[in-house]
Amino acid sequence: MLQLSLPQAMANADTVMASAELPAAPDEVIAALVTREVERWWGSPETYRMIGWNADLRVGGSWSVVVETADGQQLPASGEFLEIEMPRRIVQTRRYGWDHPALGRQETTVAYLLEPIAGGTRLTICHGGFAGFPDAAAEHAEGWARVLGWLQGYLGGGGRAA
């Protein structure tokens, strides 16, 4: 059985890097990240939940989701898929449809890189486009560490249907 270490994340002036070892095959991890399955695990009652996930999973296809905060606000986010190499790599743009306190509506790019390892998958996230927004980069590094913790718990049996 894969001995899971805590997710790691860090940021510099432009880019956030985060990684985690996950107890699932790469195709299961990809499904959790880019299908309606995100609604099952991405968030918590104390923070926010993802609702209304919609994606056209092809290069040039769009995706959208609504971030529903703990106090009931509904904040849209969306983007486009730039690269898809199933199940090893997906690159997509991300833009908030609201004025994020540290980032505004600046478009960023998220790359999910998946590597098979014994007992599962190493997921590395490279989230770029934060030049000029160092506070947003630091905030997103903390956010990715939290999200990867949720994903570890979910894929480890904390929420998936058998």
Rank of each mutant, 00 (worst) to 15 (best):
Q73K: 14
V34W: 02
Y112H: 14
L155D: 02
Q8P: 00
Q106K: 15
L148H: 04
E68R: 15
W150K: 09
D99P: 02
L22E: 10
G97A: 01
I117R: 10
P23W: 02
P76F: 07
A137I: 04
G156S: 10
S5P: 08
P26H: 11
P76L: 11
L82Y: 01
T93R: 05
F133S: 04
S19M: 14
C126L: 14
T69E: 14
S44M: 12
F81W: 08
Y154K: 08
H127K: 07
V34C: 06
W63G: 12
W98F: 15
S5V: 09
Q73P: 00
G157V: 10
I30G: 01
T121H: 06
L113S: 07
L151M: 03
S64L: 11
V34N: 02
L6F: 13
L22G: 02
T69K: 09
A136T: 06
R105T: 14
A18D: 03
A25H: 07
A18V: 05
W42S: 08
A145I: 05
T35W: 05
E28D: 13
A77S: 14
V29E: 01
L22N: 05
I125T: 10
P87S: 04
Q74L: 13
T69A: 13
Q106D: 00
T15M: 13
E39F: 09
P87H: 03
Y112R: 01
R105S: 10
D56K: 08
Q152P: 06
V34T: 12
A9I: 10
N54G: 14
I125P: 02
R49Y: 07
E68G: 01
A136P: 06
